[in-house]
Design a protein around this nucleic acid. Structure first.
Lengths: 338, 338
DNA sequence: TTGTAAGCGTTATCAA
DNA sequence: TTGATAACGCTTACAA
């Protein structure tokens, strides 16, 4: 029998108490699975709950317990890029996994306008969540400082410049970029360029820095193009531009796998063979890397771990435990594109 | 000057009232921007708010107003597919746009396990949101019936079989599939197959049905392969299988653009030219369609409109307005892959 | 225009 | 083991 659809008024704990012939306190204890409830009381309450169709009002509960058992995940991603980047899905799933296990509800809030930004800040401020993990913040992101001011336990995925000193989890983009660039150099390429992206994010900025370091005196600024987003389109255009500037180019570091995939298309359209004529490497080891022909040499980044670790960082703060910055390992995975 | 970080106790409306030398009621009126507040009172309250660092407690407010001004967007997507499908990002953004304009906070809840499913149901039941839009429900999805039982205003994107009779917004997958298949037939192909996917969703099921209808007596079941998810990998494997079964195949309808992209790779690896040797069409007109070479002929589906319309459906119910099922238009966009 | 006071539906303390 | 009762922080008649 479906619960009586009292669309007029929802049953309260009082209604249950009356129906069961017991007090509110006892009903509350049953609902929360506490000890010190006799079997007969428990049964009576359970029957009453079923008969009046009671469900607990979370607002009232949160008000008295002063917690919500929910954690926000704030996604501030440029419109066009949202979910084109497979990393963010993995981060989300990773965070959800650890929060779910700890019996917290993950609520994702997306910021797509200044208006959203304000509303999300209000949402956090209102005490509707006990903590927040922030992904894809850009340099000097207003939501980042808002979170700090609000004082809610929080952690970043990545650590953009200009970000308040909150705990974060990241990878060493610079070191990873250096490694893969060095590997590319070692294949004997002479003219190596880079398609840089998202320089206003720590990831984009640091990948470029790593490339530059690895190139040392061979670094040639005219062989670097820069685009705002990690997209296939950026790779396509970037490679075309590089080819225009220097037809003899024989190596390319693309700032992400999606960018590398676009670049590879441009290379093939220009009649060049990968890796024979030009070697190309990406970054992320996302699903893109296995889609290209040949498959991409790239840097593996543990996106799900990024998400789960960030979630753990905020959980630790909630529990009053110390939470330190975490830098996760990456690995170069060498396939056939270089 | 940053607000005093009273980590000990948050200021309440009472503290503001005391500081301003006014009553709680007046403070509340100022906070909510109501009329009938003298300028001097308003100013005094605003100063007091700043000095004590007051922010309103949403749980308390929601408790008395009996609303949350938040709408849930429930994503029940198989782990691996989450956000590989660009449609879902567009749906999310579309919904966020209309809700944001109406000053509602969109909170996305993802379901990735049975445990999640129960927790999300509790979240909805608890009154933490005023409505819900459900995307990517599968046939007989438990969360779908939970939502119906809970009685919260809701709308589906799509209308899987076995779904309770709640308002939904969808496209006519079957008619669209028929159109593009007919167009493919008209190019003179003789042996046309299909790579079907997600048959447990209305979209997957109906696209296949449309294909079958359009093929009429030419329909050949041995030229159909079926995979659970709309993925690149499904397209890759599906096309290989089709080629094995029938090397002379000269036309393919892939159930989504991602699938088509995978199929195109398989075709090219087998040495076949698209569209000369085999014509291929997809579905969605997502970013995938412009990435393949040649670019994909496909069905344009207004993913953002799907999201915004679903949000409007929910809003209408909250406002007590009638809300009817909506079927959105699609269009065949013909490029070079067939 | 402002103040008073009664809830909103829980949980939690303290007696019984 | 159970029952009163006092919060939790806010909104909202109703009075003044």
């Amino acid at each position: 029998m479906p619960p009586p659809r009292t669309r007029n008024r929802r049953a309260t704990i009082n209604d249950v108490a009356t129906a069961a012939g017991l007090s509110r306190g006892t009903v509350s204890r049953v609902v929360n699975g506490e000890r010190y409830v006799s079997d007969e009381a428990r049964i009576a309450v359970e029957e009453a709950i079923a008969s009046v169709g009671y469900v607990r009002n979370s607002a009232a509960r949160n008000l008295v317990t002063q917690e919500s058992r929910a954690i926000a995940l704030i996604i501030h991603e440029p419109h066009s890029l949202l979910f084109e980047d497979p990393n963010i899905g993995s981060i989300l799933l990773g965070a959800n996994e650890v929060l779910s296990r700890a019996d917290y509800q993950l609520v994702s809030l997306i910021i797509d306008s200044d208006r959203d930004s304000r509303r999300v800040a209000d949402y956090l401020r209102g005490g509707l969540v006990d903590g927040a993990v922030i992904v894809s913040a850009r340099a000097s992101d207003p939501i980042a400082s808002a979170v700090r001011d609000i004082g809610v336990p929080a952690a970043f995925v990545g650590h953009p410049p200009g970000t308040p000193d909150l705990p974060y989890v990241a990878i060493d983009n610079s070191a990873a970029a250096r490694s893969i660039t060095e590997r590319l150099v070692a294949t004997g390429r002479r003219r190596i360029g880079m398609i840089a992206s998202a320089m206003d994010r720590d990831s984009g900025h640091d990948r470029f820095a790593g490339f530059r370091e690895a190139m040392g005196s061979r670094f040639d600024p005219s062989l670097v193009v820069e685009y705002p987003l990690y997209t296939y389109a950026a790779g396509l255009q970037g490679m075309q531009e590089l080819l225009r500037r220097c037809p003899e180019i024989d190596g390319v570091f693309a700032a992400s796998d999606a960018v590398a995939a676009g670049a590879m298309t441009a290379l093939q359209e220009s009649g060049r063979k990968v890796p024979d004529d030009v070697g190309i490497v990406g970054f992320d080891d996302s699903s893109w890397a296995l889609r290209t022909r040949p498959q991409l040499s790239t840097v593996r980044q543990p996106a799900d771990l990024l998400g789960s670790t960030a979630a753990e960082l905020v959980l630790a703060q909630i529990r009053g435990l110390p939470s330190a910055v975490q830098v996760l390992d990456t690995a170069v995975v060498w396939r056939d594109s270089a």
